[in-house]
């Protein structure tokens, strides 16, 4: 199972990096979205398999809900809690990112990454005059 998950992580990661480096902002947004899947699968892979092989016999661990396991073996609940948090946060991030894209498009009428570069950089703030006593 760990091998399978690693493959998934590698593929999703590669695809999202490919999308990150695209010039189209929509692709970038999709890349970000996909990226979260890779991260979640990676975390859950690192929490160990839901199976335990002892002397050739495979035992299934139960979900982290007390009372559901006959053997009293549960998978680690902590990574799951972290991922749950992360899923909800990535929803917020996705929404925010899409709003950014809409705002960006309306501002410069372009979906090109290169147009993100702000030509009129913020000027050096006017030097603060010496603090005067009131």
């Amino acid at each position: 199972m760990t091998v399978l998950l690693s493959i998934c992580v590698a593929v999703i990661f590669a695809v999202s990096v490919y999308l990150f480096t695209s010039r189209d902002l929509k692709s970038v947004a999709m890349g970000v979205f996909l990226f979260s899947h890779a991260a979640h699968l990676g975390i859950i892979a690192m929490s160990g398999q839901p199976l335990l092989t002892v002397s050739g016999e495979t035992i299934r661990k139960a979900a982290p809900i007390l009372g559901t396991s006959e053997a009293g073996l549960h998978v680690d609940p902590l990574p799951q809690a972290l991922i749950l948090t992360s899923i909800v946060i990535s929803f917020a991030v996705t929404g925010f990112l899409l709003a950014l894209l809409v705002a960006q498009h309306r501002r410069v009428q372009s979906m090109d990454v290169a147009d993100l570069r702000d030509e009129d950089r913020p000027e050096l703030p006017a030097s603060i005059e010496t603090v005067e006593m009131a």
Binding site: L5, S6, M46
Partner: peptide
């Protein structure tokens, strides 16, 4: 580039996951 990154992360996952097992 993407393949390189993907393989790296996958490899890390594999090692970390098996260590947990």
């Amino acid at each position: 580039f993407a393949t390189l990154v993907g393989v790296s992360v996958g490899w890390i996952t594999l090692h970390a996951g098996s260590a947990a097992d």
